[in-house]
């Protein structure tokens, strides 16, 4: 049994790989993941694609010891909400650091990594994880 269908994530490659979200020209708000309409301006909103800089700060974090399907071999792993320096807040994993370096306020930068393997016959998903700088 696969966790995720292939096209479901294929549609998101550019957003996951390049940190591509969007921006509302009317209210100047950034969105990641990209939104279909600006929830503030709605019909008056004008959305355009925007690539965010891969730098941010940890707002909060956790260490996950019991993982879901596809992540069970990675446990324990750190996850965090990251406020991008020039963008919104996103959720991702923190890697390449002992857990005691994962702290609120720590500066992080993105690295390209394997996210998870979807079973023995499913595809391997890639995307961004983050490391403490």
């Amino acid at each position: 049994m696969h966790r995720t269908s292939v096209p479901l994530l294929w549609r998101r490659f550019k957003h996951h790989y390049r940190l591509l979200g969007n921006h509302c020209k009317t209210c100047k708000t950034d969105y990641y993941p990209p939104r279909e309409i600006c929830p503030t301006c709605r019909r008056k909103g004008v959305l355009e694609e925007k690539e965010f800089e891969k730098k941010g700060t940890i707002q909060t974090y956790s260490i996950i010891y019991a993982g879901p399907v596809g992540f069970d071999k990675q446990t324990p792993y750190a996850v965090a909400l990251i406020k991008l320096d020039n963008g919104p807040v996103l959720v991702s994993q923190i890697v390449d650091a002992p857990f005691d370096q994962v702290k609120i306020g720590a500066k992080v930068t993105a690295v390209f990594r394997k996210i998870y393997e979807d079973g023995k016959e499913g595809i391997i998903h890639y995307g961004l994880k983050w490391k403490v700088v």
């Binding site: 479901l8 998101r12 956790s62 996950i64 019991a66 879901p68 992540f71 792993y77 959720v91």
Partner: peptide, 21 residues
């Protein structure tokens, strides 16, 4: 699921993020 689930988040994980903050 498409954005939080993809990154390996779990429900205890999401509430842990709130607890930590």
């Amino acid at each position: 699921e498409e954005w939080e689930g993809f990154q390996g988040l779990t429900f205890p994980g999401l509430y842990a993020l709130m607890a930590r903050r």
